[in-house]
Amino acid sequence: MGMDPGRLTEIAQDSSIRVPETLKHDIGVTARALELLEEKQSEETARHRRYFGLAAGSVAAAASIALLLASGLSYPKDTFKDPALAYAQLEETFNLIGSKMNPGLEMAQSVQPMLDNTITKVLK
């Protein structure tokens, strides 16, 4: 009927207006029913919002876990298809490691006599 429940309550409580007792009772009941309906609708809206939030959160969590697992299980692709080429690269890598270590090893070798002398003196 589109009438504000508050207004209906006012009319029901207005003693200057003489209305049949049954009508007064019916207006009061209708006003209360409208209030209850509004409360129920609010509860349902809140419940729907909670369920949607939970669903969205679950999907996001599952996607994160899937992403984590995928990154851990996948392996890169071999650079070479030919084992001979891979072998050549391995050789080049060991040569590179050796060349880089050379200065450090030479330095260590050059101080070795000094270190030996120092240890000998300390132990005497």
Partner: peptide
């Protein structure tokens, strides 16, 4: 980083090492 710009990268897998099999002498140095 392997696909980044100004990066060169090499990967040899366990399977590729197995394929190398019985190798000829490898000259290191």
């Amino acid at each position: 980083y392997s696909d980044s710009e100004n990066v060169s990268a090499v990967y040899i897998s366990s399977a590729m090492f197995k394929l190398m099999g019985k190798l000829p002498s490898m000259s290191v140095g």
